[in-house]
Nucleic acid binder design. Structure first.
Lengths: 286, 286
DNA sequence: CCGGGTCCGTGCGGTACCCCACGGAGTCGC
DNA sequence: GCGACTCCGTGGGGTACCGCACGGACCCGG
């Protein structure tokens, strides 16, 4: 009934649960490896965690985990394993039981609603600042949304049973997740209005900013096809909007490789929903 | 920045907290008064609560409250007061502290997101099947949404402090509210996709069904102006869509008085989001 | 060097909305 | 019974998308 489909339909070769755990990964040293962390972004502040095994290096950690008191954090880390999120992997399918939860560190994940079956639209994004599977804190083991890896990178994975146990044990964890759930709800509401009223250009700008925040880099990989899918528009809609941004030297892109040139101007070009989302997050979890 | 405003802007003479408590309202008898309850709808089954003071009459109660075990339910009712929700009353303004929570019985409430300031769009509806202010179960005392009385009628009101106390005491209450929050999130996600992809006609049909479910009557009051505001379209968009429904004898309306004539056909005319929402609710709280 | 795949740009016609405006029909108070 | 008001219908013109299709640019492997 009156679905306006896009030509960006289900074209993404989605892989099923191919995330492989890294060998024996329980310490920060192993998790972050020798990788140097970029700090060329003003977003998602990730602070050094202090003395946890490797106290010399400034270590990247998921922000929600970092908010936990030391004891609870260590327990949670102990039951987690590090996995490499591969671009395009489908982590959750709608209305299925979720087997694991994810705390992204470098990678990030899109949450997508599919209606009537077909294409879908993104309503949320999870990176280092959040987690995937927070519904478990509500005692519900499924998810209405599809979750898709949109930026490759590391994440901590915890199986659902272990995570439930930690939830039962840790007041702080429940408290943090409850707040995060609230933020998610606020962002869902914003997304509804944004997709309804705002045009492609500002929405694209917003979306690029959100991606950059979570990719922790000026540079990331995204085809126009994928962008179209996320924003719920045609690919050519992205083509023209992105061309416009490029002409104004806000971004540069070439065959899926996108570089943000002028972040401040991009913010100005984005709709206010970007700032609203950030504010909602910072007010409760900043 | 590139907002597409509608002419259904903030035209509704919104009253501030004019809901007046009924005199001494702690029993079902007083709450339901002599009012006869209509049963001409297949929705929101409200079962008799058994022997609570007035065991002879079949009493309408909020469904979430009805799900609680007797002891917790009585405690909750003891701290509640019955209020009459007046059409158009603004119960919550975005980002303000919420002083009370509401469990509608006859009335129902729209949750609206406002972006950029201006008009807004409805992302949720609360009637007897739900409650307003469930965020308190997440430990957050504000709301990102505007809440507006859309159908007049009775509701139970509990002040925030008392409600927090009951939350701390009752596992069952927390459990029910967590599930309800999950349903809300699912519905928010659905709303985002629905407003993006579905056209005015099916969305209007869906919306009328949702209203009818909560009004517990084939008949309710709604101007096209108000409908336009809720759906985020122009009034004339509603005019034509509603005229189409009327020509097919699915509804009848006249100066704001709407009557549903053929509910089955209206369901067929509505987008699938209606059924999806109902299913999400019934799966967890049915 | 050449085919095949991926990705991006353009063009064309259609349409479902937009905004602005006016007019008519019902309702109510005095 | 006469204005004032609320509510609903129509009409004209604009636009930001849509679907479809084709072509060109880049990349890679053999």
């Amino acid at each position: 009934m009156s679905l306006r489909p896009t030509d960006a339909a289900s074209k993404f070769s989605v892989r099923w649960q191919t995330v492989a755990p890294l060998p024996d990964a329980h310490t920060h040293a192993e998790i972050t490896g020798g990788k140097r962390l970029r700090t060329d972004t003003d977003s998602c502040p990730c602070r050094p965690l202090g003395n946890f095994r490797e106290s010399l290096v400034t270590v990247a950690e998921n922000h929600l985990i970092a908010l936990l008191p030391r004891r609870d954090r260590l327990r949670l880390l102990a039951v987690s394993e590090s996995v490499q999120l591969e671009l395009g992997t489908l982590l959750y399918a709608p209305n299925e039981l979720l087997r694991d939860v994810y705390f992204p560190v470098d990678g990030f994940i899109s949450m997508v609603t599919a209606i009537d079956g077909k294409p879908g639209i993104e309503v949320g994004m999870v990176g280092r600042e959040g987690m995937l599977g927070a519904q478990l804190a509500l005692g519900v083991g499924t998810t209405p949304l599809r979750a898709l890896v949109q930026g490759p990178g590391l994440a901590r994975r915890i199986d659902a049973a272990s995570f439930r146990r930690e939830l039962a044990r840790s007041n702080a964890l429940r408290r943090v997740l409850n707040r995060y759930l609230y933020v998610l709800m606020a962002q869902l509401a914003t997304a509804a209005a944004c997709t309804r009223f705002h045009q492609v250009g500002p929405r694209l700008a917003r979306w690029l900013l959100m991606s950059q925040d979570r990719a922790h880099s000026k540079h990331f990989h995204l085809t126009q096809e994928f962008l179209a899918y996320m924003l719920g528009v045609r690919r050519v809609g992205i083509t023209s909007a992105a061309a416009h941004l490029q002409r104004r030297d806000l971004i540069r892109y070439r065959r899926g490789e996108i570089t943000v040139l002028d972040r401040a101007a991009l913010k100005a070009a984005a709709c206010d929903c970007y700032a609203a989302d950030r504010k909602a997050y910072n007010d409760l979890l900043g």
